[in-house]
């Protein structure tokens, strides 16, 4: 009782809202990007020196300057763009269709407990399967053209979206669900106004993984059997022992992956804006 004898407690909350932290300064923020560029320069210089001094054979590992020259040469050749277009198309179509399918199926499984129980063994089996082994199967079915690679990209990218959508929908805070029910919310409203938005952070994590995997799927498909695409080009160059060209195409594929990933990350930050904000306010 003694602690309660004060006649008047402060009427305001004892805990103030978090205030934004101070600006750490441009120097602090510039360390990351500048350091990364310096690191890249160091690696390139070391690579150049190792090959020049004969420590590495340039038939096996090309000089960075040779790779750069090959890259310029590649960009000046018209057929490169045809292959680039084919792979881009395969990745984008595969990714979009895979994401839509993964979301639709994941939402269905997330909502229906019965469907989840029935499909569980198949999900576990498919999760354990290294999806690249499907490439020969799809090429047998869909041929050497773009279709088999699209199917490959779909098959490999839809799964993480499915799993994460399902996990997100089944992991909704039961207390929040109770709140919705006490407000007489319909099942549809519980889905659209609670379950779906609260699953979005997980769904986007799945989509990001799926995007990277779509690129893997398309390239693996092209390796196994194709007549066009960057994976096909990579294959041809390595048979011709055009090693700088192989590295140049690899660089293009890496850049493609980075651009797609940055785009999705940007969309993620716009859609799931509350997630990054929350992280920001707890780290401050």
């Amino acid at each position: 009782m003694s602690e309660r004898t004060a006649t008047k407690e402060p009427a305001t909350d004892s805990r103030a809202a978090p205030t934004p932290g101070g600006d750490p300064g441009w120097k602090e923020r510039a360390i990351g990007p500048i350091g990364a560029i310096i690191l890249a320069i160091i690696i390139v210089v070391i690579g150049e020196l190792l090959v020049l001094n004969g420590i590495l054979n340039d038939i096996i590992v090309p000089r960075p300057t040779d790779v750069f020259t090959a890259l310029i040469a590649t960009f000046s050749e018209g057929f490169f763009y045809r292959h680039l277009w084919v792979t881009t198309l395969e990745v984008l179509i595969g990714f979009v269709v895979g994401t839509v399918l993964g979301f639709a199926l994941g939402a269905f499984l997330g909502v229906s407990k019965r469907a989840r129980a029935i499909s569980y063994p198949y999900i576990v089996a498919f999760q354990g399967l290294p999806k690249v082994v499907l490439a020969p199967v799809f090429i047998t079915i869909f041929g050497f053209g773009i279709e088999s690679k699209i199917v490959m990209a779909i098959a490999i990218s839809f799964f993480p979206v499915l799993i994460n959508t399902m996990a997100g929908l089944t992991g909704v805070d039961p207390q929040a669900r109770r709140l919705m029910r006490s407000l007489n919310a319909s099942d549809w409203h519980i889905f659209t106004k609670l379950s779906l938005p609260s699953s979005l952070p997980l769904i986007f994590a799945g989509i990001k993984t799926g995007l990277t995997l779509a690129l893997v799927g398309a390239i693996v498909g092209e390796f196994v059997g194709a007549d066009s695409g960057l994976g096909y080009l990579l294959d041809v160059y390595s048979y011709q022992l055009e090693i700088p060209r192989v590295w140049a195409i690899t660089t293009v594929l890496a850049a493609m992956g980075v651009v797609l990933f940055l785009f999705i990350e940007w969309v993620d930050r716009k859609v799931v804006f509350w997630q990054s904000q929350r992280e920001l306010s707890t780290t401050m």
């Binding site: 109770r178 709140l179 029910r181 006490s182 407000l183 007489n184 938005p197 979005l200 509350w274």
Partner: peptide
């Protein structure tokens, strides 16, 4: 039954972050 005349409040604020 759940209806507007009855309001339920929990220990957690359960505000939707979005």
């Amino acid at each position: 039954r759940p209806r507007a005349e009855v309001g339920l409040m929990f220990q957690q604020a359960l505000l939707f972050p979005w």
